[in-house]
Design a protein around this nucleic acid. Structure first.
Lengths: 340, 340
DNA sequence: TTGTACGCGTTATCAG
DNA sequence: CTGATAACGCGTACAA
């Protein structure tokens, strides 16, 4: 029974448009249209195609489609270490919003170094994304040139600058620093401790704080630098280090809520009441900040909105929808609670 | 000066292999080889190519490359809501390890529903990934069939079953439940409260606990179900609800450390000392568990290892490296601390 | 070690 | 509304 019909190679490739077309008695092009733009195809034809798709188990090949159409429906996203609680929510909302528009996320975790960002982006570029999301506004010039050369829509997030590569959704870290500084000065604090990671954005916030403190004049401060990623343990050891210096502090300013929570616990072990003996201030307004005991005074950023706005800007620009304002300052809110 | 040479369309497309070849005075194929397998090309030729690449600003088009070679160097990863602290680390290590091997991550957040997982995976499949990472082992059958049909390497993670689709890196939620139950029984506890999310894996752990409690006989328990995602606030309200029922409890078992931390804070507000008046147990061993006050007794999972192992299994299988054991139980460790 | 012919699976374009 | 043809940019397979 060695039938001639089975002579063709039986290495069952995945079914293609042509297979579907054959099954439906149509041309591949019609099948393509029935799948992508059903409204310009006769309903009866569409039905035939759908049936054939089901029968063959056809799954479109977007590699081929993207190559031919020059649109990949792919968005490259570069974040510095995703295991930072802040970025995760942004990526999540970015993913959600983009999915609705039919885009997929090509995710890249760049670490906080610039070299790797370059490598990563050029690798990403080779996937021919339709748009790019970059965290931060400090990229090395070579990279920046490469991206600009592609002419691709870009959204930079989590930072503010009047001169983004293209579009931007962020907020001013310096202003947040200012707000923190003013808030604590108003509360009468003059001796400050910083528990701080040394990434660029955190340092900008610190500069914002110091500008205000310097203007005041009679302030003093001391640093406890901690490595990334910021953990509660680092918050504890950070405050421990500050206290061991022999200095006394009115207020501890932390570059994240996680550090702040650690500092608050550590204060307990030194019989320091928060905020009566020592105030502790965080940043980020993470889930736990509001219901910690004491509730953590911090700065709220709408990190979901960053993702959502970035997605909308990007998708709109890709699809030719006129974008009114390419620079979005989503602002921030100082959340006065109990810890400071 | 309207030169004939500029007659060709000036819509500056991105440079292609052919442009580089022309610039280098070589054939496109040689350029391709110089880029992908430099070791089989004469060094001088490689150098010429590299120069031409720099001059032209060439960025490879992986869409075309993948289409031709039938290898996309793309790994599809499906996770249920990434803003769960546990998965983030796994995704991170997956990304890191895969990047080393030259693969990119196509990330999809599926939520906890099955319907969306199907949509998502078929969409992902259309990108022709070289491998798939699925969270969990419960997928609807249609989806499962589609994936099996592709013949693609698959790694299921965060669960254990003797019959995975293909490969698996996980641990037994039931055994963890057993361990928690036995541990607390040994401590003399008999009246339990559960603060629990109702996702499948958490429920498996609960079943593990209950199996042990039932075997003991003289136990009683009560539930406080909370929605996803688990937050500290839900831990607080969960314990609040349990206490309001009028029952008393020896031990509170939480489906995550985040809930446990909330429960511990809430206990404070009810003048309940942890663990003297009430024990609290978590799950996950997140960063803060060890340095919370009291330190949280919990179950440690090496979530980085899950990602790393999954990446290795996948990359090995894709590249034809013989895979010894496709089912990896990474186990768990009950971390006895202060809270229970 | 390098080059040539062809195919990968789809969409753009233009013709019917 | 549907079909034929020619790209899309690269890698495979083989020839030189």
């Amino acid at each position: 029974m060695k039938s001639e019909r089975n002579a063709r190679k039986t290495v069952s490739r995945a079914p293609t448009l042509e297979d579907v077309a054959r099954a439906a008695g149509l041309s591949p092009m019609t099948v393509s249209r029935a799948l992508n733009t059903p409204n310009i195809v006769r309903p009866a034809t569409v039905a035939k195609v759908m049936e054939a798709v089901k029968v063959t188990g056809y799954i479109p090949n977007l590699l081929a489609g993207s190559l031919a159409s020059r649109r990949s429906k792919l968005i490259a996203v570069v974040v510095p270490q995703i295991n930072n609680n802040m970025f995760v929510d942004t990526v999540q909302s970015l993913s959600d919003e983009l999915a609705v528009r039919g885009y997929h996320l090509l995710l890249c975790v760049a670490g906080y170094s610039h070299e790797s960002e370059t490598d990563i982006v050029s690798t990403l570029l080779s996937r021919r994304p339709d748009g790019i999301v970059l965290t931060g506004i400090h990229h090395n010039t070579e990279l920046k040139k490469a991206i600009i050369n592609t002419g691709l829509p870009v959204v930079e997030i989590w930072d503010l600058t009047p001169t983004p590569i293209d579009m931007l959704v962020g907020f001013s870290h310096e202003k947040i620093g200012n707000a923190i500084g003013e808030y604590l000065l108003n509360k009468g604090h003059r001796r400050f401790g910083f528990i701080w990671t040394d990434d660029k954005r955190a340092m900008l916030r610190k500069k914002g704080v110091l500008d205000v403190l310097n203007r005041q004049g009679d302030c003093q401060w001391q640093d406890a630098l901690v490595p990334l990623p910021a953990t509660m343990a680092l918050g504890r050891s950070g405050l421990g280090a500050l206290l061991k210096s022999g200095q006394t502090f009115d207020a501890i300013i932390c570059s994240s809520d996680t550090l702040a929570q650690g500092a608050i616990f550590e204060a307990q072990t030194h019989q320091l009441r928060v905020p009566q003996d020592i105030a502790v201030m965080g940043f980020g307004d993470l889930d736990f900040a509001a219901c910690n005991i004491p509730a953590i005074t911090t700065v709220n950023i709408d990190r979901w909105k960053i993702g959502k706005d970035a997605a909308t800007l990007l998708a709109d620009k890709i699809e030719g929808v006129p974008v009114e304002e390419g620079i979005v300052d989503i602002g921030f809110t100082l959340m006065e609670r109990e810890s400071a």
